[in-house]
Simulated scan of single mutants.
Amino acid sequence: MLKKILRYLFLIMTIIFGILTVVAFTDSVIFGIIMLVITFIFFFFFSLFSAKNINNISKNNENIKQNKTLKFQVAGTFLGGRQANISKFFFKKVEKKEIISYEGLTDSEIKTKENIDIEIYEIPQDYEIKSNYSDGLIKFEKEPENEYDKNAIRVMIKGMGTVGYVPKNINISFAKILENNDIKEITATICGGEYKLWNGKKLKNDRDDYSVTITINY
């Protein structure tokens, strides 16, 4: 705010002394030169503050252009025992009391009018795991020897192992992001799992397949 005030102050002073310079030259050349020098000094400081402001705007615009987001749902999370591995991960979290299962509700607390036909999940839905990629919490591994797709990229989460693959329609473009080391942050969002449903008469236990959505900032 102070820089903005100073910038406008120097602009006003430049204009005032510019006018005084013209008047001064009509009376005395020496006095006119002095006023001209003062005018240039004020103009210099005005230009200095303006240049800094322009540079800051340019840097902000450059950052906006550079920051991109890619979001996709991991393919094949239901294959090869991956559901069981995800379930084990959350079982340990519940056991260590790092997360609260079924929103902390008992069966009798679920069986109320407010919860009729509402799925109460064992794990918090939209559970997030954040990684800066270098920490190894979320990793990607190319599989050029994959018999189904030579461009396949495996998705791994610490504590779960392989949860699936980058979708086939984007794995080539995603490989370029990996090659360029452009990844700044990764978020894995996990939904599904065991849930309880009260229909007003009976408490039903059922489950949805876990799904994993990856969001990448690069």
Rank of each mutant, 00 (worst) to 15 (best):
I118T: 09
Y195M: 02
S134E: 12
I183Q: 04
K88G: 08
L48Q: 11
T187D: 02
T189C: 05
T69D: 08
I153N: 02
S173F: 03
I33R: 05
I54W: 03
I172H: 01
L2D: 10
N85Y: 02
F45T: 03
D208C: 04
D182C: 01
G76N: 10
G32Y: 00
V29C: 07
N56H: 09
F31L: 15
S28P: 07
I157K: 12
N217L: 12
K168R: 09
S101M: 04
S134R: 11
Y195G: 06
K139Y: 01
N217M: 09
K184Y: 02
I216M: 13
I153R: 07
Y102V: 11
K111H: 08
N171D: 15
Y218Q: 07
Y133E: 12
V163E: 14
F40D: 08
N132F: 14
L6W: 10
N171F: 07
L11K: 06
Y127G: 11
K150F: 14
R207M: 08
N169V: 12
G192I: 00
S87D: 15
V163F: 12
E98Q: 15
A75C: 02
Y165S: 13
V23L: 03
K68C: 00
M1A: 09
N180T: 03
E147C: 11
K111M: 15
R154G: 10
E145Y: 02
E103W: 00
E119D: 08
Y121E: 01
G136M: 00
E194N: 08
I153Q: 05
T213Q: 13
T162P: 03
I57P: 00
K96H: 09
C191Y: 06
I190M: 04
A75K: 04
